[in-house]
């Protein structure tokens, strides 16, 4: 076939250089179809249709190749022997350096627990109270009949807003003055009728039995929620803040142990449906790098634990 005149021969001759290490291999796609079209034309007399067929066939072939690569069912679990791992004190020293000069209340330690888990299926999701809570200013709303004993209990336990209609009205007007929302079991029908799910749902505030936010004993639930943090597995990783930057190694260690323990219990609760396990634990901070932990508090050559507990 005649090459179109727009190509200069010198360019074409440079198509097959041999000096690079990555020797050029014509793809099967090219090798297969470089000559045939002209012969085919004579054979069928319907060249354009033929070409179209070719094209569609090619597409199918490519698609098949892509489909052959079966998607993994599990998240990857790299071999941690190659990973740099740190003791808690070493990791904290790096993170405290990275956070120098930040307001101590705004910068936080975060823990990322990477799980051995399938990509679909049930996820770890719960709420817990750390031995050393980070945030104690959570505002809680409780949906229950106002002026009842339940409401009094809730207020005594530390709820900010209590009521039924009053809360619904406020939410509809866009005044959401709380970070968590609980609902008493008896008030659930009223809540579902009120039509606030559209507003609360996207903010993850809508009470539901799934998130343990529809409860009978409101007082206890509120008590457990003040200073509690929520966590949930996303893409095989559970993340949560585990300490303010001012915390010392002992406090952080206790929080980490409590959090990992809680996640392991949740994994145990899911054991009949899906098998999961803790793969890697990474400590990071608001502005700092993520450091994989080796499980020890102090390593060889670590600084004194008191040094990393100095405020700022």
């Amino acid at each position: 076939m005649a090459l179109p005149s727009r190509y200069c021969p010198s360019c074409l001759s440079s198509l097959r250089p041999t000096r690079t290490a990555l020797a050029f291999r014509p793809s099967p796609f090219l090798a297969q179809h470089q000559q045939p079209p002209q012969q085919k034309r004579h054979a069928t007399g319907l060249p354009s249709a033929r070409a179209a067929m070719f094209r569609s066939k090619n597409k199918d072939k490519e698609g098949a190749a892509r489909r052959k690569k079966k998607a993994r069912a599990h998240y990857t679990q790299p071999d941690l022997k190659q990973a740099l791992q740190f003791s808690l004190v070493d990791a904290m020293r790096y993170l405290r350096a990275a956070e120098v000069g930040r307001p101590p209340t705004s910068a936080k330690y975060e823990l990322h627990i990477r799980l051995r888990t399938v990509k679909n299926g049930p996820v770890v999701r719960n709420r817990m109270r750390l031995p050393h809570p980070i945030d104690t200013t959570t505002r809680i709303a409780v949906i229950c009949p106002p002026d009842s004993k339940i409401a009094k209990d809730a207020l005594a336990a530390g709820a900010q807003v209590v009521g039924e209609e009053s809360i619904f009205e406020a939410v509809k007007e866009g005044r959401i003055e709380f970070d968590r929302c609980l609902c008493h079991t008896d008030s659930l029908p009223k809540l579902s009728k009120a039509g606030v799910a559209r507003i609360l749902g996207p903010r993850q505030l809508m009470p539901s039995a799934k998130t343990n936010t529809v409860v009978k004993d409101v007082g206890a639930a509120v008590k457990g929620m003040v200073g509690a943090s929520e966590y949930r597995e996303r893409e095989g990783v559970v993340r949560m803040g585990v300490g303010q930057l001012g915390f010392g190694p002992e406090e952080v260690q206790k929080n980490i142990a409590a959090f990992v323990g809680a996640v392991k219990r949740d994994i145990g609760a899911l054991a009949d449906r899906v098998s999961k396990g803790v793969h890697e634990i990474v400590l990071s901070s608001t502005n700092g790098p993520g450091l994989s932990l080796n499980g020890e508090v102090r390593g060889e050559g670590s600084v004194d634990t008191r040094d990393v507990s100095v405020v700022n």
Partner: peptide, 8 residues
């Protein structure tokens, strides 16, 4: 100098 407080 992890033991020296540095504030901004």
């Amino acid at each position: 100098n992890p033991a020296v407080p540095m504030t901004v």
